[in-house]
Design a binder for these strands. Structure first.
Lengths: 333, 333
DNA sequence: CTGAAAGCGCTTACAG
DNA sequence: CTGAAAGCGCTTACAG
């Protein structure tokens, strides 16, 4: 019983060929004659040989790993994007390393952008420093984007998506339509607020000068927004609200319900993302669906193309969104 | 402008020392005299040298990676466990690779258990085949466990946790207490059902012979459970229910609310896990809190200890749970 | 405290 | 189609 793992030289000895030939059978079988190939394959089976990836990677000057930088792993929104990424990367022979940018420090992130750690980077956090990310390994941005970072972007048209929510609420007869934005400075917050404002203006509806920023995209931020709304003058406060995330919309609904109000009778609510949960709460939430798995898949494919050295025009790729009407929105009474 | 990344030999040349000395400065500075160390460090700074991990790993016969096998990445329950794992592994110099066992095939999993891919494995999915997991790389099991797999387990006492829910409902005066179990055959489902049955028996309360299994731990499974409950005889159906997951409890509540019932007036509900969301729905859910981050941290620490070659008694490590009383449970009227 | 040298397990240009 | 040999970038026992 051999303790050590067999290596290519063990296979070569048993098959009676050189290590070069064994290597070719493994990575380029077409170069080897059929007979030799069969002998080598038998020896591989006999020894239970398995390739040592560290050695191959060192030789190939690659790591075989792709790092995804995620703002917050505990947000279910990202899980499906990661699924999409993995579904492309893993069959292509890459490992997917997932790093939570909130819990990691800045030095750690730079460490991930190291060519000896990862062959490429998928950035899902728009708040990262562009300087630390560029010029090291190939990068693709997905969902969010880092202003000033020259790397392909796979995303939705956030402004147009926000306008979809406004159009839906306006079509239901609402005139005082509010928007609870994500955190100040976040690229998504700004784009969605901008789209909301433009849509309101285009319909001649009243429009805030200043966004109602939340602390983040969380449930708790939505709860806090509910307190602001509940404290406002009932004669002038919005009769309908769109939110920059489903989590916020959920937090809002939970809080106003706890205060005895009924959604959508007392206020219509539109979320953003279409996370699984919100179809199951009461009332089921009307929202904007983002194609999460597709966002992940396309970002991964684009990164692979760059890794293969293919030319990338480098321009934004915009994926379609969809308004999903459920029961949290109703005509103005 | 040098195109290539500097390597240890470049640093050595500039510092006027051997590559061995440079290597020692990097990984064992105490072995090198102060003067030499300073010279080498200056040369490192000058060249911008960064260690090549593939080379070091090949030399050390390790990969520097730990794989976490997760049943379902899109379940927010796992995100915080992964956070806990990463918080220990990353500072210790390991990469965390995350693999979703649902989306990956069986061969892929075996590939992950390869010593050339990962130095260790954290298994979070109890449905994996024990045979494919043992005898390859060090393994630690967390939350779930694989029957027959001889590897340390970090988990909660699921039966005792389920009994906590029963005790709470019984103390509120409920006599007909039901339990919606997780999927049949899942180790957690069985343990929690068993704990429920024992607690009911101990109090002399009526107790089902057979678990009410759900398809999985999902929202949709909870919704389906609601339909069964709604269809049952109101005179004999449970007045209180505990669930094997928060997601199921949410799905249940949403569905019964849609049928015009009120929680907890018409039925008391206890969840399991304490995912963030459920504090924000209406009514906020009473549940059993699992220490997720701690489960992840301890599993990672235990794996690191094995990797260091420390002796591990190999027995189960049980973490405490806590009943969190919110508003989805009320006295029987 | 420091250096020369071997070696981790692969791959590939080169020669035949 | 196949082999001998160099080399990917480190680390470390050995010798001094």
């Amino acid at each position: 019983m051999k303790q050590d793992r067999p290596k290519i030289s063990d296979v070569a000895r048993i098959a009676g060929v050189s290590t070069a030939t064994v290597s070719r059978v493994i990575s380029n079988p077409g170069m080897v004659s059929e007979d030799t190939r069969a002998t080598v394959q038998a020896a591989i089976a006999e020894t239970g040989y398995r390739l040592n990836h560290a050695a191959r990677n060192l030789r190939h000057q690659r790591t075989g790993g792709i790092v995804a930088l995620v703002p917050n792993l505990s947000n279910p929104f990202f899980a499906q994007i990661l699924s999409g990424i993995a579904s492309v990367l893993v069959p292509a022979g890459y490992n997917l390393l997932v790093a939570d940018t909130h819990s990691a420090g800045a030095e750690m992130l730079l460490d991930y952008a190291e060519p000896s750690r990862a062959d490429g980077l998928i950035v899902l956090d728009g708040a990262l420093p562009a300087a630390g990310l560029s010029g090291r390994v190939p990068v693709v941005q997905a969902c969010e984007w880092v202003p000033g970072l020259l790397a392909p972007r796979v995303k939705i048209d956030n402004a147009a998506a926000a306008a979809l929510a406004v159009a839906h609420l306006a079509d239901l007869g609402h005139r005082r339509i509010g928007h609870v934005a994500g955190p100040r400075g976040n690229v998504l917050s700004e784009a969605r607020f901008k789209g909301t404002v433009e849509a309101l203006r285009a319909r001649g509806l009243p429009c805030p000068d200043q966004a109602d920023y939340a602390a983040d995209f969380s449930l708790e931020a939505g709860r806090a927004a509910a307190d602001r709304w509940l404290a406002a003058d009932t004669a002038t406060r919005p009769t309908a609200l769109s939110f920059a995330s489903d989590a916020m919309a959920c937090g809002f609904i939970g809080e106003v319900q706890r205060h005895g109000l009924v959604v959508p009778r007392d206020v219509s609510v539109v979320g953003f993302d279409d996370i699984e949960l919100i179809a199951h709460i009461s009332p089921p939430l009307t929202t904007i669906r983002q194609p999460r798995a597709a966002l992940g898949r396309l970002a991964a494919e684009r990164l692979l193309a760059r890794l293969r050295g293919e030319n990338d025009p480098g321009d934004d790729m915009l994926l379609p969104v969809e308004l999903v009407i459920r029961a949290s929105t109703a005509p103005l009474v």
